[in-house]
Amino acid sequence: MIGTFVVARRELSGLFMAPFTWIVLLVVLFINGLLFSSFLYQTQGNVTATLSESMTGPSFWLWMIFLPALLSMRLVAEESRSGTLEYLLTAPVSDAAVVLGKFLAATGFLALLWSSSLIYAVTLDYAGGPPDWPAVIGTWFGTILVSGLFVSIGMLASTSTSTPLLAAFLSMVSCLMWIAIPFLAANIMAYLVPLLTSTAAEQAVLAERMGSVVASMDALRHFSRSFQMGVLDTAEIVFFLTWISFFLFLTARSIEARRWRG
């Protein structure tokens, strides 16, 4: 456990010593700020709608495709390339602690980035436009969970290659696919269901079953269903934590596999 925090601390300090991080912070915060003010004009001062739009709108999901990938590509792939992974994996910390520490650092950085919305909310509250606080806090919490999910996917991609750029690309594609699951699934199902079934009743049942499977993986829906409403639903939290644990587990296994592959 101590190992996890030691690793996370080094990752964070390493992050904040890299110019890359500050450039990302500057650009993301600047663009988010611009979008926020434009939303505020568009909604004619509707504080809650503006915050909701800026925290969960298309811009958020667009960032979510790029940022976790860029952050996680350096976590393992770059260390593997520079050789420091060998140092870390021969230090007296377990693989799990290394993976968890890195994950916490990257997710923590994204959490910090998204907390800029909280500053907007506080500012608006102070200026006389009280936002819907439960929704704001819930959404913020949700963005952290989504960030964690995408970072864990990115880390898995990062362990599968020692080329950081390829890792980032793989991670982006995976995250994009994850977001696009419902749309892709609808297409695939339209072809698949008639092939597997003969009667209309069967078709309906199969489509429904497959639909429920797809829906259970739909991060967007899980996100908007509870957190955006200001509800911290345990089921939704478990949904995200399960997927995060799954990918982190695979990441740890993938790192362990390096010890065998060499």
Partner: peptide, 30 residues
Amino acid sequence: RRSIGYLPESVPLYPELRVEEMMRFQGRLH
């Protein structure tokens, strides 16, 4: 791992850290 000092051929050190910070990181890991 706790009782050995291992220096790989590539001398893996984090380039963005100062020497003392690198040492402190090693100390914390141990």
